[in-house]
């Protein structure tokens, strides 16, 4: 039963990653990231109970509280403050992005079967989903124009790495968990400030303008 829950939530994370690629409203993308993190938390909770790894509960609480609630709130506040155009403008159009992500998912799934733990059962799906999400995160990062969307892509990659850690290992010790969480917070805060600076200087979040010498 809880095996099914794990797979269901992992699949849900893949769907949210997919929806993130497929739609254009910035706020929806942020909410999707929050939902994805909450699903990740549920995966951790389910694994804590099935495999009797109580320390996973703490990282689940951290994931839900920090990545599911705090970071989305912080990002939305940042966007509200700088008052930018709330639409994602990708370099690659949506249908092509979706097709490419489709291919990336197939690659991620295929690769996961080569891993020792990824051959079969729930671990196969968890690792397959996380590798696909990792690739999709990388793809989002190189094809998105706005700094905030690139932060979201980075956070998606981070979620994917956490999920692969859950699926392939018996979970990381709490100290490492805490370290990673603080890294993520600091990264988001710093990137938030960076976004402010970029907008101040260039009156836009479009990072492609950074490569021009004149504004």
């Amino acid at each position: 039963m809880s095996q099914n829950l794990v797979i269901l939530c992992a699949a849900g994370m893949l769907v949210t990653a997919y929806l993130m690629v497929g739609q254009k409203a910035l706020f929806v993308a942020i909410r999707l990231y929050g939902l994805q993190s909450i699903l990740l938390g549920v995966v951790a909770v389910a694994m804590a109970f099935t495999d009797h790894r109580p320390h996973l509960l703490e990282s689940a609480a951290l994931t839900i509280g920090l990545k599911g609630v705090f970071i989305p709130w912080f990002l939305m506040r940042t966007i509200d403050r700088i008052g930018i155009h709330r639409e994602i403008e990708p370099f690659v159009n949506t249908p092509s992005s979706l097709l490419i992500c489709l291919g990336l998912t197939v690659v991620g799934y295929r690769v996961s079967t080569g891993l020792a733990a990824g051959g079969e059962g729930a671990a196969h799906h968890v690792i397959g989903v996380s590798l696909s999400m990792l690739l999709m995160g990388l793809f989002l990062m190189v094809t998105r124009r706005k700094a905030v969307t690139q932060i979201l892509a980075l956070l998606t990659i981070e979620n994917a790495v956490f999920l692969v850690a859950l699926g392939a290992t018996s979970g990381m010790p709490l100290v490492v968990e805490l370290g990673i969480s603080f890294d993520v917070i600091v990264a988001v805060l710093v990137l938030g400030i960076l976004v402010h600076r970029i907008v101040d200087r260039f009156e836009s979040m479009d990072v492609s303008r950074l490569s021009k010498l004149k504004g």
């Binding site: 893949l14 997919y18 497929g22 739609q23 254009k24 949506t94 489709l102 998912t105 197939v106």
Partner: peptide, 23 residues
């Protein structure tokens, strides 16, 4: 003109569902 993008999303999810079934 954005509707095709939404439907492409749905089509993509369908394709993915079918593809993952065999992986």
């Amino acid at each position: 003109f954005r509707v095709p993008e939404l439907m492409a999303l749905s089509l993509g999810l369908g394709f993915l569902a079918l593809a993952i079934r065999f992986l």
